[in-house]
């Protein structure tokens, strides 16, 4: 029962994050929402595993938690340099307006 309440709260938060991801004016807003959706998914996995008495789901949650930040950083680096895995050229560095 207590897990159902928590799952309900996380689902509401997940919906609001999806709204922000669809609405977000800039790519950074969408990325922020994607990060929040990932965190919500981890909490959903853990709580759902507890609710159904199969806490093995936690292992999937751990994997997802480790992948989440790597994904965000990779997308950010791609935005900034247009490529992954290349050293930067300081001369081409964009100056802030």
């Amino acid at each position: 029962m207590m897990f159902s309440v928590a799952i309900l709260g996380v689902l509401v938060a997940l919906t609001l994050a999806v709204v922000r991801a669809l609405k977000g004016p800039t790519a950074f807003d969408r990325l922020l929402a994607a990060n929040a959706i990932g965190t919500s998914a981890i909490m959903l996995l853990a709580l759902f595993g507890f609710m159904t008495g199969r806490p093995e789901f936690l292992d999937i949650g751990i994997t997802y938690a480790l992948l989440n930040m790597i994904g965000t950083l990779a997308v950010l680096k791609f935005f900034r340099y247009g490529a992954l895995g290349h050293a930067q050229d300081p001369a081409k560095e964009r100056e802030p307006e």
Binding site: L8, G9, A13, L14, R20, A36, S40
Partner: peptide, 12 residues
């Protein structure tokens, strides 16, 4: 859960 929803409301 309340903190979670509050944070998400702030995000929208």
């Amino acid at each position: 859960a309340a903190f979670y929803v509050i944070g998400a409301v702030g995000m929208t």
